[in-house]
């Protein structure tokens, strides 16, 4: 890879600058930046699984656990989110493994995996609604506010919260790197290609799948917790269920789930697009923005299944890659 380091620097420097810029911008931009950072984490977490054909339609479940558990602990028992969030992550991982273990054992893949995870998302949504005495049901709930407090992870100062979100986002990228670098990727890629062949080649399919499932669900719960702490408002439809699960899938795909920065670009793209459409249409046309959004998603999946990053890679790579040589005919 000649010049690989140079191009990387060229890529990372502006990225670092972009990540640092919100600290010097207005509240409005900081608000966008926080959202982008948090959702980037969630989308990255989803793509960790999605890129290996573990297409989950139930990540809303982990998001919901991450959002509600720390808030419930805080409101009812005064437990600090610094303890509540790890607990929520552990619970999300446990939930993921309870479903992930048997589904990996039974080789539940493709449509079936997607629909089983969809049901899981629905379970969490319904449980939140059913526990309306403590969660407020579909009306939602707010964490008890104490003003500015690091102990309660309530940071009305957007710049401070952005710093927290940035750290969490970086944690997501580190997880991606760990998967990318280690054996785990080779193993999972061969599983995605052909599970039985991978197994007979000595890959512990079950172990690798569960590892990635645990990392993905834990990070998603972290994202859910941060989002709740940031908005200071939780509702089942925004934090769980099919709608949000699909939103996660789409943004990750739109950005490109095969590249470390793809989901982040997906987050920036979808949030800026939604915001732009909102500004464009105002609040008069509720739904106009989302209608266009939905149509765009269809177009993305049909024409750019590898996302924005995939498209960029193709355009950049085109002049350098010589046309594929025709298969040579073996000599007689």
């Amino acid at each position: 890879m000649r010049g690989g380091r140079d191009t990387r620097l060229l890529l990372y420097l502006p990225l670092a600058a972009a990540a640092a810029a919100p600290f010097f911008l207005s509240d409005y931009f900081q608000h966008m930046a926080v959202q982008i950072a948090i959702w980037s984490l969630v989308y990255t977490a989803w793509a960790l699984m999605g890129r290996f054909r573990l297409t989950s339609l139930g990540h809303g479940a982990f998001l919901g656990v991450g959002a509600y558990v720390p808030t419930l602990l805080w409101n009812n028992y005064g437990v600090t989110p610094w303890l509540g969030i790890p607990l929520a992550m552990a619970l999300a991982i446990a939930l993921a493994l309870i479903v992930g273990y048997p589904s990996s054992r039974q080789k539940v893949v493709g449509h079936y995996f997607a629909l089983v995870t969809l049901a899981l998302g629905q379970v969490v949504l319904l449980v939140i609604v059913a526990m309306r005495d403590v969660t407020g049901g579909s009306l939602g709930m707010t964490p008890h506010t104490v003003g500015h407090s690091w102990y309660a992870l309530q940071l009305p100062n957007k710049a401070e919260f952005y710093a927290v979100a940035l750290v969490a986002w970086l944690a997501g990228l580190v997880a991606w790197r760990y998967v990318e670098r280690g054996m785990i990727r080779l193993a999972l890629e061969s599983i995605a290609e052909d599970e039985d062949a991978a197994e007979s080649a000595g890959v512990d399919v079950l172990r690798e799948k569960l590892k990635i499932t645990a990392v993905s669900s834990g990070l998603t719960a972290l994202g859910g917790a941060l989002y709740a702490q940031y908005l200071m408002y939780l509702s089942p439809d925004a934090m769980s269920g099919v709608g949000i699960s699909l939103q996660i899938v789409f943004a990750a795909i739109a950005g490109g789930m095969y590249n470390m920065l793809g989901p982040t670009i997906g987050a920036a793209f979808t949030i800026l697009l939604t915001e732009g459409l909102r500004v464009l249409f105002g609040t008069h046309f509720v739904g106009a923005a989302n209608t266009i959004y939905g149509a765009l998603l269809v177009i993305f999946i049909i024409f750019m299944p590898r996302g924005i990053v995939g498209l960029a890679e193709r355009i950049l790579a085109r002049p350098r890659v010589p046309p594929a040589p025709a298969a040579p005919e073996p000599a007689e």
Partner: peptide, 17 residues
Amino acid sequence: LLATGGVLFFLQSLATL
């Protein structure tokens, strides 16, 4: 499956609109 998920969003938002 995912493409029809986009249709889901589209129809839902269009109905809202």
